[in-house]
Nucleic acid binder design. Structure first.
Lengths: 257, 257
DNA sequence: CGCAAATTTGACCAACCTCAACAAAGGTGG
DNA sequence: CCACCTTTGTTGAGGTTGGTCAAATTTGCG
C-alpha cells in the first residue's frame, strides 16, 4: 500500500492511510485518489468533544481510530443518538435541516473528514468509489431501519437486548463463554440511542443479569453469556435461514455511513 | 425520450417508461439501459395487496402509479411501517434478516421491480446509475433518521404533526388557505408508522383540529391550515436558515429508496 | 485516599395503551 | 337513489410501561 507521498515519520498508521486502506476499492482511478487526498481533512478529538458542533455543511467522516456517536438534537434536553461508529466506519453528518446534528467523540479519535458535496461529485464520475459509497449507505439504511423497528414497536427490554446483540456483532470479542463487550459509550448514550432513560437502561440490564444472560463488571465491561437467548429477547426472528442477499446480517458486520 | 423499443399500444405511459423517465439520468450508457430492461419486472397490485409477501431476495421497486407502505414485522400483531412511497419513488425491500419485510400496495399500483443484487452490480460499472442510486439512498437515509428522531424522542402530538408536515411536502396540494392532503393510508398505517395506536392518532388529530391547525373531511381528506404552526408543534427547528447542502429539506421533496 | 461523575435503586407519576362502545363513511345491491 | 351493512374512525374509562425525582452506592481517576 504505497500511498504515502511526503512520508511523515509515523509511529503508527496515519489516518489518511487508514482511510485509503479501509474505503478505497482497488479499482479506484488514480485521478480520483489524488482528488480524495486534496479533499481529505484530518481531524482529531478527545473524549466527549463535539467534532462538528453545529454542522453547517454535510460531511463524510472516516473513523481511523476511536469511536463516535452521531446525535440529533430534537430540542433542548432531548437528544437522539442516531448511530454509533467505530474504527473503519464512514459517517455521514448531515447539515442542519429540520433538526441539528452533531458528531461527538466517545474517546480519543483520529478521523478524516470530507465535505460531502465534492465527494459525491467525485463519485458521479468514478463508479468504483460510487459503488463503495452506495454499499456503505445501504448498510447505514439497513441499520437505521432496524433502529426504527426497535424504537417504534419494541419494549424497553427488547431494545436493550437488540442493542447488545448489535454491539456484539460490531465490537464483541468472542470468548470461551460467550462474548465480551467493552462499551465505549455511557448509559446516557445508550438511553439516548434507544429512546429510553438511563434508569430504564440500568433496570433492564439488571433484569438480564438476573436472568443469567449477561454479567457486568465495572461501568463498561459486559459479558454476554447467551447470545441466542438475548436475540430471542430482542424480538429477532430465529436465526438459521437468513438469506445470503446483498444486505444480509453477515454483510452488516463492518463499516457504514 | 425515445426509449420505446417494440412500442406497445399504450393509452397511458407504461410503467417501464415511467421508470426510465424518473430514474435514469440522461448520461446512463446505452448498454446499461438495455441491461436494465432485461432485469425489469413489471408488477401490478390492488389496494391492500402484499407485493413481496415474505421477501426472500432484496428488491428495488419503482412506483410508476399508486402508493405503497414498506412494513417490518416485529412480531405477530406488531408491525412497523418503515416508509410510505408514492409515484416516482424507488423502494428498497430488504430480504428477511433479523426481521421480515413486506411491501403493501395502498391502492391500485403499477410498479417495476428489480432483484437488488444485479442492479447494484450494474451500478458498479455505470457511474451515472450508481450516482442516482446513491442520491436516492441518501435521501432514504435522511428520512429514516428523521423517523428515528420522531420515534425516539417525540411525544404523540409531535409525531403526528411531523407526519403531517412531511406528507405535506411530499403529496400536499398547495391551496389558497394552506395545504390540502388526500392521505392514501389508513389510521392504522399512520399508527404503525409513528409507533402509536390508532386511538392515539385519532385523539391527536382531534386536538390539532380543536387548536385550529387543520380541518378534516371524511376519512382521508385533511386541510392543513397553519403549516408553520404544525412545524412548531412537530419540534422542528424554526425554518429560514436551512443550508443548501446536498441533503437539505428542499432536496428531499421527491423520490427515495 | 478523596472526590466527582456515573450508575443503581426506590417511590411515585403520567403519557400512552387497552378494552369497549359508539358513530361515521362509503360501498353494494335492491 | 336509497337502505343496509361492513369497515373505519372516534370517544370514554381504566390500566401499564416507562418516566421523573430523589437518594444511596459504586467507579475509577487524580
Amino acid at each position: 500500500m504505497q500511498t504515502l507521498r511526503s512520508a511523515p515519520p509515523a509511529i503508527c498508521e496515519q489516518p489518511i492511510d487508514r482511510f485509503v486502506a479501509d474505503v478505497l476499492p482497488s479499482e479506484v482511478s488514480e485521478v480520483a485518489r489524488l482528488r480524495l487526498r486534496e479533499l481529505a481533512q484530518p481531524v482529531s478529538a478527545i473524549g466527549g468533544e463535539a467534532v462538528f458542533s453545529p454542522c453547517t455543511r454535510s460531511r463524510i467522516v472516516h473513523i481511523a481510530h476511536g469511536s463516535v456517536r452521531l446525535v440529533a438534537h430534537a430540542s433542548e434536553q432531548r437528544d437522539q443518538v442516531l448511530s454509533f461508529h467505530f474504527a473503519g466506519d464512514l459517517v455521514l453528518v448531515p447539515a442542519r435541516a429540520a433538526h441539528g446534528y452533531t458528531l461527538y467523540a466517545l474517546g480519543a479519535c483520529e478521523m478524516v473528514a470530507f465535505a460531502a458535496d465534492p465527494l459525491f461529485e467525485l463519485a458521479r464520475s468514478d463508479a468504483a468509489l460510487g459503488h463503495e459509497l452506495l454499499t456503505r449507505t445501504l448498510r447505514a439504511l439497513a441499520r437505521s431501519r432496524e433502529k426504527t423497528i426497535a424504537l417504534g414497536r419494541k419494549t424497553a427490554q427488547e431494545r436493550v437486548a437488540s442493542f447488545l446483540v448489535g454491539m456484539a456483532e460490531r465490537i464483541g470479542v468472542p470468548d470461551d463463554e460467550g462474548c465480551l463487550l467493552d462499551l465505549p459509550m455511557t448509559r446516557r448514550d445508550i438511553a439516548d440511542s434507544l429512546g429510553l432513560t438511563i434508569e430504564t437502561i440500568s433496570r433492564q440490564l439488571g433484569e438480564l443479569r438476573d436472568a443469567g444472560l449477561l454479567a457486568t463488571s465495572g461501568r463498561s465491561r459486559i459479558r454476554l453469556l447467551d447470545l441466542p437467548g438475548l436475540a430471542a429477547r430482542a424480538g429477532h426472528l430465529p436465526a438459521g435461514h437468513l438469506s445470503a442477499g446483498h444486505l444480509s446480517a453477515g454483510a452488516l458486520t463492518k463499516s457504514s455511513i
